[in-house]
């Protein structure tokens, strides 16, 4: 896509700006849709209806109205807050989650930056979010925010390990961090996807990745950094208006990013499940987004099913269950790859 655009526009800088803007164009409508979708799903799971009036059909315009309201809101900065950090934090959080999109392969023809360490880059840059969260919590000068930020940091740092290890299992098989290579290695029918390879090792790896990624994006049952029943709203207690919207946008962008990685690494990315049927760059985009949305649906499904974990339970799941299991998987896959060679 890059070469094609350079051919048309004859201006490399413009092309880079355009390429960078593509994920943004995706994130904002996606977040608006996902918030509405989550409200609908939560409502129906509780035998309610959710938003029904705004915009006519099933309240489809509700989130658009909400974001317009948020834009108009007064920008309040608490008197005791550290102004600089307080203002900077939402941008750091958003930049952290947006930067991950640079290496996410949306389709065979489009990936922001086709680097050979794509997966590594995403893992590294998405940890940047935790800096923003800590910043937000610390700068708010509010006990709830600080609690939320500390919990977020503890949680993300511990769950990064199982995430990285479970992805490492796949990297050992493909032999590269390049996400497009990982995609190509899974082409063909859906039994070529890595979840179904080296059964059951990679299936367990996919499960571990999914659980740990839930914790990484602070979703229920691992939403203790936000924990509205204990911490008001966690690290974004003091935020309002556009800055709150930005934090919220980052949260949903993160949700899609981890779902996209799950789809790419374990579920074939932009590959069609049926070989050559409905494959190609455009269908690739379709498959990629449907897979990502399916994972997001599971995120939401779990959110409205499970209660929140306690902090000690969270640490138990992270350190005593997910990490040992992912080590076993890495070892098992390693031996398998070596012996099968």
């Amino acid at each position: 896509m890059k070469e094609f655009l350079i051919d048309i526009l004859q201006n490399e800088i413009l092309v880079y700006v355009l390429m960078a803007a593509v994920p943004l164009v995706w994130i904002i409508p996606f977040a608006l849709f996902a918030v509405w979708w989550e409200r609908k799903i939560s409502a129906h799971m509780q035998d309610r209806l959710g938003p029904m009036r705004t915009g006519g059909w099933h309240g489809w315009a509700q989130t658009i109205a909400d974001i317009l309201k948020l834009i108009q809101k007064e920008d309040i900065i608490p008197a005791a807050a550290d102004r600089k950090l307080f203002n900077l934090a939402p941008y750091v959080v958003f930049v952290g989650s947006f930067a991950a999109y640079a290496a996410i392969p949306f389709s065979a023809a489009y990936v922001g930056s086709e680097i050979n360490i794509g997966l590594f880059y995403i893992l590294a840059v998405s940890s940047f979010v935790v800096v923003g969260l800590l910043m937000a919590g610390w700068a708010s000068n509010n006990k709830w925010s600080l609690f939320g930020a500390m919990r977020a940091a503890a949680q993300i740092v511990s769950y990064e390990i199982p995430v990285a290890l479970s992805l490492l299992a796949v990297v050992m098989i493909v032999g590269t961090f390049d996400l497009q290579e990982i995609n190509r290695a899974q082409s063909g029918y859906f039994w070529n996807w890595f979840v179904f390879q080296k059964f059951p090792l990679l299936f367990v790896a996919a499960t571990i990745y999914f659980v740990a990624s839930l914790a990484e994006v602070n979703r229920t049952p691992f939403d203790i950094p936000e924990a509205e029943s204990e911490l008001v709203a966690g690290y974004h207690t003091e935020y309002g208006g556009m800055k709150f919207a930005l934090l919220f946008l980052a949260e949903y962008a993160n949700m899609f990013a981890v779902s996209a990685i799950a789809a790419t690494v374990f579920f074939g990315g932009w590959n069609s499940p049926f070989g050559d049927f409905m494959s190609g760059p455009v269908w690739g985009l379709f498959w990629f987004i449907s897979k990502g949305m399916a994972f997001i649906f599971v995120h939401m499904w779990l959110r409205w099913t499970l209660p929140r974990l306690r902090v000690d339970q969270l640490m138990y799941v992270g350190w005593k269950v997910l990490i040992p299991f992912s080590f076993v998987i890495v070892l098992g896959v390693g031996f398998w790859v070596m012996l099968a060679r």
Binding site: H44, Q46, D47, R48, L49, L302
Partner: peptide
């Protein structure tokens, strides 16, 4: 414990899934 954790999560998910298709009780 791990097995029970996974199993009870699946049971819970089955319940919420069935409620997803239960007609809502909301009176508009």
């Amino acid at each position: 414990n791990i097995w029970e954790g996974i199993w009870t999560v699946l049971v819970g998910m089955k319940i919420t899934w069935s409620h997803l298709f239960t007609p809502a009780v909301t009176i508009q």
